[in-house]
């Protein structure tokens, strides 16, 4: 019987100790690499953009010329297009997404059907952007041409497709927030005599508001950076047009269209545009993350 206690006193073989340390450090370095990549992305784009930043300064943001021949660049139109297309998309998909999240979090439908619908809405998020673009080119634009003064690719179809693409983000996160509202709160409201919709509008939605706002901001971040579908539908014109039926441009589609053929200062100007887009989306995403994490703490 003494053998057990003797064996317990044996030290671990050095190889095992080394393995332990190596493994821990591999994990640690991999985790830090994630933060490193994020910093690397911003730094690299910034350094590449430096020549254009030096040349154009902040005026880059307020000029709408894009002339590779004379090397004059400004991204007023793409900034305008990025913001307007995203806002129109939000305008459409926020009410619809909230409606979906309410239907799928209340007890309207049997659980089985609810689960299938949740899956279908999530599937909308999984379809590749370029497939939406393809569908938009061959189905949506011809359809819109029949019923509106639309002539070809323009702001309207791009914003419509965007609204479909960001809908699942809003509805999924809003649904999570609605489900997480304490059941006691709902019972209290119903107990006081509130109808279903009085409970939803006056009690549940306010209680879930931070999650809903977080979801909307994540959707905004996605809309701002969405590239392929928008590039295929928006028409890529650098003329500033207010009409929804006229071609426009976004920062991401400017990049998608010009990057492969750019050279010299144009590359740097495109990097500058990418930097602007990266900063906008990073800020929106960080704020959204903070709002959503606050929610999880409650």
């Amino acid at each position: 019987m003494t053998s057990i206690s003797e064996r317990r006193l044996e030290q671990r073989p050095p190889l095992e100790k080394i393995m332990d340390t190596v493994f821990l450090w591999a994990a640690r370095i991999s985790a830090l690499a994630i933060a490193g990549v994020l910093i690397w992305i911003i730094t690299l784009v910034f350094i590449q953009a430096l020549p254009a930043i030096g040349q154009f300064g902040l005026g880059f943001l307020f000029k709408s010329t894009w002339n590779p021949v004379r090397d004059e660049y400004g991204i007023l139109t793409p900034i305008y297009g990025t913001i307007v297309s995203s806002l129109i998309a939000l305008l459409i998909s926020v009410p619809i997404g909230l409606g979906v999240s309410i239907v799928l979090s209340e007890d309207y439908l049997p659980t089985q059907i609810q689960r299938i619908l949740v899956f279908l809405v999530e599937l909308l998020a999984a379809i590749p952007s370029v497939v939406y673009g393809l569908w938009g080119v061959f189905v949506l634009i011809p359809f819109l041409r029949e019923i509106t003064p639309l002539k070809g690719p323009s702001m309207l179809p791009a914003a419509l497709i965007l609204s479909v693409m960001i809908l699942p983000t809003i509805s999924a996160i809003a649904r999570d927030a609605l489900i997480n509202v304490d059941i006691g709160v709902r019972q209290a409201a119903v107990g006081l005599g509130a109808t279903r919709w009085e409970t939803i509008l006056l009690v549940i939605l306010p209680a879930a508001s931070s999650g809903i706002i977080g979801g909307i901001m994540l959707a905004l971040g996605r809309a701002l950076g969405e590239t392929m579908a928008v590039t295929m539908l928006i028409g890529n014109s650098n003329q500033l047009n207010v009409s929804l039926f006229q071609p426009s441009n976004t920062i991401s589609s400017l990049l998608a269209n010009q990057f492969a053929e750019a050279s010299g200062l144009q590359v740097s100007a495109l990097m500058y545009a990418a930097l602007v887009l990266a900063i906008i989306t990073l800020v929106v995403n960080m704020l959204a993350q903070i709002v959503v994490t606050q929610l999880q703490k409650i």
């Binding site: 933060a35 994020l38 950076g225 990057f259 990266a278 989306t281 994490t293």
Partner: peptide, 18 residues
């Protein structure tokens, strides 16, 4: 690091391409 992961997942793929 979780925060960085979530932010990274929100970086548009075109920026990653750039």
């Amino acid at each position: 690091i979780r925060f960085a992961t979530n932010v990274l997942s929100g970086v548009p793929s075109i920026i990653i391409g750039v």
